[in-house]
Amino acid sequence: MFEITWDSFIRIVTVGSLAYIGLIFFLRISGKRTLTKLNAFDLVVTVALGSTLATILLNSQVSLLEGLTAFALLIGGQYIFTFLAVRSKSFNKFIKSEPKLLYLDGSFLEDAMKKERINRVEILQSIRNQGIGNLEKVKAVVLETDGSMSIIKGEPGNTLSNVESKKNI
């Protein structure tokens, strides 16, 4: 349990260093978009990259080349999907959700909250996390595509233009 052989130690250090350098290389050539967490799809890719790196480090049956190929496949797939999503509205809608309005002008939008499986306590927690202690200061709460909640104070502007709601803004 607490033992390690010199061979496995040397393998972990060598393969781990090279895999880490390979991952950084792939991330640099793929651009900043690869590690954004704008939606669930991006989060899955980020977690999968971390899992792949751990597998390369700890599983001696996975070669460095296999691991680097997995990195290239994940990053390449994410690049292709985001490339298509930017150019096709229907593909974008297929892989991404829309932001959803949960609270507006003093009213909790119960239907939207039920659909998104969000309750009042979670919305109130998000408001408190922004340092706001009074609901009167909150104009709107939006559940974003990445699962975070945006709290909007004062009058809404153009930032609510693409938010799904049954109320007219």
Rank of each mutant, 00 (worst) to 15 (best):
T36N: 13
N39Q: 10
I56D: 03
S60T: 13
L35Q: 15
L49V: 03
F83D: 15
L74D: 07
L65D: 04
V47C: 03
R87W: 06
V47Q: 06
I80F: 11
Q61W: 09
S60A: 14
I56W: 05
G76D: 06
G76H: 05
I80Y: 10
A72S: 12
A70Q: 09
N39A: 07
L65G: 03
L68Q: 01
V86Q: 15
F83I: 00
K32R: 13
F41E: 13
L58Y: 14
S51A: 15
G76I: 04
V62M: 10
L58P: 11
A54W: 08
V45N: 09
L74W: 06
L84F: 09
F83W: 13
T69L: 06
N59V: 08
T69E: 02
G50S: 05
T55A: 15
K37D: 04
K32Q: 10
K32W: 02
Q61I: 08
N39E: 12
T34P: 08
F83L: 11
L49N: 07
R33E: 12
T52C: 07
A48F: 07
L38D: 14
G50H: 03
L68I: 09
V44T: 14
I80A: 10
N39T: 11
N39G: 03
L64C: 06
Q61E: 14
F83Y: 14
S60Y: 09
L57A: 04
T52P: 09
F71V: 00
E66W: 12
E66Y: 08
K32E: 07
V86F: 14
A72V: 06
L74K: 05
G50K: 04
T52F: 10
S63P: 00
S51L: 14
K37F: 13
L38A: 13
Y79S: 10
L57M: 15
L38Q: 13
S51K: 12
T34K: 05
L64E: 03
S63E: 01
G77T: 09
T55G: 09
L38N: 15
S60K: 14
V45G: 02
T82N: 14
L68T: 04
V47G: 00
T82I: 07
L57V: 05
T69C: 02
V44W: 03
E66C: 01
T36W: 12
T52D: 14
A54R: 08
Q78P: 05
L64W: 03
L43H: 10
A85T: 08
R33C: 02
L84Y: 08
R33V: 04
I56E: 08
A70V: 07
T82K: 11
A48E: 07
V45C: 03
G67F: 00
I75E: 02
A85Q: 11
V86R: 15
F71D: 02
R87Q: 12
L74F: 04
I75R: 00
L43G: 15
V47E: 00
F83C: 04
A72K: 09
I75F: 01
G76Y: 06
A40N: 12
V47L: 12
L53F: 01
L43K: 04
T46D: 12
T82D: 13
A85G: 11
T34C: 08
Y79P: 02
N39D: 15
T55N: 01
A85K: 09
F81G: 05
T36S: 14
Q61L: 07
A70M: 10
K37W: 01
G50C: 07
N39C: 08
D42C: 03
V47H: 01
A54T: 13
A72G: 08
V47W: 02
D42W: 01
N59E: 12
